[in-house]
């Protein structure tokens, strides 16, 4: 039985359009030199050739994906449920990143300190990573299990703390996030 939405036709059409867009518009306009150029009476390959070739490969494969979809039909493997999951996943990861990046400076600021000065000192250098990373692990564990529990939160924070120590104690030169950015 054919599906109502032919996923490969949509994928193929998008790839065809994207490939044409790269080859005909993006690569020529966003490169310094064209397909080929003459420098001191010698021809050489320009910067636009390689992305144009990539665009042609993408467009051609898109055409054949769409053609295959029309001739054989396809079974959808990407659903609205997958996209909803992806949004939840990204929200958790982005929240973790934001916590990782700003928890240390916010806590230091609240105590009247400047994080940049403290970022090489314990426990300051661990704060962002443990809260952000631990929060990310906790969020993803909860997403997988479909429930929230205090035990999992503690476990997630312990895992993040253990990772911070494993990386930080033996390797002096390694920086934990976000200490290379602040």
């Amino acid at each position: 039985m054919r599906e109502r939405v032919n996923q490969d036709v949509i994928l193929g059409a998008l790839a065809l359009l994207f490939g044409c867009f790269i080859a005909l518009y993006w690569a020529p306009i966003d490169s310094d030199t064209g397909i080929a150029e003459k420098v001191r009476s010698r021809w050489s390959i320009g910067d636009a050739l390689a992305p144009t070739v990539a665009g042609v490969v993408i467009a051609t494969s898109g055409f054949f994906i769409a053609l295959g979809g029309i001739l054989r039909g396809t079974k959808s493997t990407l659903s609205a449920k997958n996209l909803t999951y992806l949004i939840f996943f990204l929200v958790i990861v982005f929240s973790g990143f934001l916590t990782m990046r700003y928890a240390g400076p916010i806590i230091a600021g609240a105590l009247g300190e400047e994080y940049r000065v403290l970022r090489d000192e314990r426990p300051w250098k661990y704060i962002g990573f443990i809260l952000g990373g631990g929060g990310m692990i906790f969020g993803l564990m909860s997403l997988a299990e479909g429930r929230i529990s205090l035990r999992r939160l503690i476990l997630a924070l312990l895992i993040a703390a253990a990772l911070a120590l494993i990386y930080d104690l033996p390797f002096e030169d390694l920086l934990l996030p976000p200490n290379g950015d602040v």
Binding site: I22, G55, I58, S61, G62, F64, G68
Partner: peptide
């Protein structure tokens, strides 16, 4: 075709 699409995206 999907393998070639992946290769094209990788090159890009």
């Amino acid at each position: 075709a999907k393998g070639l699409l992946a290769a094209g995206l990788g090159m890009l």
